[in-house]
Design a protein around this nucleic acid. Structure first.
Lengths: 147, 147
DNA sequence: TATTGTTATACTCTATAACTATA
DNA sequence: TATAGTTATAGAGTATAACAATA
C-alpha cells in the first residue's frame, strides 16, 4: 500500500502473482550479486561460467551454454573475455570443440567468486529457516520444469 | 545431472543458489507469460501497467513507475504506446502531471489480460498446494525487502 | 528546491540467421 | 545430417544525464 501526491491509495494488483513476485525478487538478488562481485571484476554471468568450468574442467563452451541456458552465439564473447583476462584456457578436444579449464589466476578468481557469492547468498538465506530455504529451492526447481 | 558428448558428467554447481534458481524460474515464467499474452498484443510490462491503471484509475505515470520499479524515462515510450493504441487516456491533474485511465478498449483489453494471466498463473500454481503458494509468495516478498 | 514528463543516449541481455569446419 | 564455434545484427530492457515546466 502506498499513496501518491494526491492522496490516492495505490495498492498493487500484481501482489499475488507468482510470476511478478519472482521477477521482482530475482531482480533484487541479481542487483545484490552484481554488487557483491564488483570488486572481483566479474559479472554474475561470468562468475557462473567460471564455477561451471571449475566443477567440470574440460567441458566445452556449448556444454556451459546448455547448462546455463545461454545461446551458443552469446557464449562466444563471454568465453573470449575470460580468455583475454587469462582466467580460462582452451585445449582442443577434436577438430570442432575445445575443452575449457581454469588457469591458476582463474582458480584464484573462482575462490574470490565463491566467497562473494557465499556472503551474498547468506544475506538472503538468513531470512529463512534452513528447512524453508530447501523448500524454496525445491519450489523454484519445480517451476523450472515447466519451461 | 547431464552428460556431454565425451561422457563427461556435468553437475550444476549453482543448483543450491537461491539467486540462480530465482533467475531461472523467473525466466521460465516470463517466457510463459509472454506466450500467454501473445494474442492480446500486450507485452508483460504493458499488461502490468494496464492492471495498475485499472486498479488505481487517475494515477500518474510516475506513480506506475514507482510501483513497478520502472524509471520515469522508460515509462514515456510505454505509456505513449498504450495511448497510441487508444488503450489509455490522460487528463491533466495539475500543470505537470496527467491522470491515467483505461479507455473502454483498454478495459476490454484488461479483461483479456486478466484471463491470460490467470491461465498462466494457474499453470504454475497448480504445481503446489494453496498453502505452499502462499508461503512461496511470502518468501518472495521477504526477499524483496532486502532490495 | 523537488517533481513531472520528456529527450537523447548508451549499455547489457537476449535472439536469429547464416557461415565454416568438423563429426 | 547434426554439432561446435563464429560473425553480424536486431530487439528488448535498463540506466544516466540533462532540460523545461510546474509545484
Amino acid at each position: 500500500m502506498a499513496k501518491n501526491d494526491h492522496n490516492q491509495t495505490l495498492h498493487d494488483p500484481l501482489d499475488a502473482l507468482l510470476g511478478y513476485q519472482l521477477r521482482r525478487a530475482s531482480s533484487v538478488m541479481m542487483a545484490d550479486l552484481s554488487a557483491a562481485l564488483r570488486e572481483t571484476g566479474l559479472r554474475p554471468v561470468e562468475a557462473s561460467i567460471m564455477l561451471v568450468i571449475e566443477s567440470s574442467p574440460g567441458c566445452t563452451q556449448s556444454d556451459v551454454g546448455r547448462l546455463l541456458a545461454i545461446k551458443r552465439a552469446n557464449m562466444v564473447p563471454l568465453i573470449a573475455g575470460l580468455f583475454k583476462r587469462d582466467l580460462v584456457y582452451r585445449a582442443p578436444v577434436d577438430g570442432r570443440s575445445q575443452a575449457l579449464f581454469l588457469s591458476p589466476a582463474g582458480e584464484a578468481m573462482a575462490r574470490e567468486a565463491h566467497s562473494a557469492i557465499d556472503r551474498h547468498e547468506q544475506r538472503f538465506q538468513a531470512l529463512f529457516e534452513d528447512a524453508d530455504v530447501s523448500k524454496l529451492l525445491a519450489a523454484l526447481r519445480q517451476i523450472r520444469t515447466l519451461g
